[in-house]
Design a protein around this nucleic acid. Structure first.
Lengths: 147, 147
DNA sequence: CCGGAAATCACCCGAAAGGATGGCGACAGG
DNA sequence: CCTGTCGCCATCCTTTCGGGTGATTTCCGG
């Protein structure tokens, strides 16, 4: 729905723009240059957006130094995750919260909106039974959800 | 897989469409439209490529594992404390922050006002070179200021 | 094909946290 | 005595968080 609107608008704008240019006789003076250049720019932008959007599912792994105690390379407690009903995305957000990132930074890193990060973290806090991020990090560490 | 099929089909359809258009001599009637469409397609592709190219490095999988021999029952790094110029009170506040307490709770526990806690934590963040409490906890743990 | 889980996004609101500045009393060392 | 450090408190302002509600899209399994 939203996408349709977006494309509709973009298309409308494009057409209007072209019309205007046509009226300015630019199109007759530099037909392919102006027209093509604009198209190229606009669609390059759209391409970047689409590329980022559709390839998102590629695994996003955070560069992180894992400090291991001699007990071994730390193992994620998958059981706890399921027991608490924590989804991958939530777990991902948890990791970034523990890394000290703000919601906005997390949103940037995951290519989603800040609102999304907030819902994720809210649900996360719920499932962990905490109400602040520092507590969440503490709890998660205890439960073996993060290194 | 499903997506690949979809794109394949879409591509096929597009080509067929273009062929049909060509056949209808549309190319002669509306050259700019066809030209623009092609440009759009091409630059969308280029955009996708560029978008991926420039953002890819950010999600390269680099799991750096640093083995550290952290044997004993943890010892406070007094040196670091002095080096950073952290006072006892600030260190005390740091501990409570790491315990997941809010400024108000810390104030209650230390019998001081919330404002005082805030100045302490502010200075603490300054000395630790961070700006959020989760970061402070993380940093402090790295430096051996808290268990 | 339907229903539910998961992920996404939006908007609102109130509380918490953080930054900047300034003031005040105590106490130590030059 | 003067200066510096520390601890304490306040006020103002901005940003960040957290909670609540509702909606859409995608995908999976029955």
């Amino acid at each position: 729905m939203k996408r349709a609107l977006f494309y509709g608008l973009a298309g409308g704008l494009l057409i209007a723009l072209l019309k205007w240019i046509e009226y300015q006789h630019f199109i007759r003076a530099y037909p392919s240059e102006v027209y093509g250049g604009l198209l190229a720019l606009i669609f390059t932008g759209i391409g970047i957006y689409l590329g980022l959007r559709w390839t998102r599912p590629k695994e996003v792994v955070v560069v992180k130094e894992v400090r291991v105690r001699e007990a071994g390379p730390w193992v994620l407690s998958t059981g706890k995750l399921q027991e608490l009903g924590i989804t991958q995305r939530e777990h991902e957000v948890l990791g970034l919260i523990a890394a000290g990132l703000s919601n906005r930074e997390i949103a940037g890193k995951l290519f989603v909106s800040e609102n999304t990060v907030k819902t994720h973290s809210s649900r996360l806090f719920d499932k962990l039974g905490v109400s602040r991020r520092v507590q969440a990090v503490q709890k998660a560490r205890e439960e073996g959800l993060i290194p």
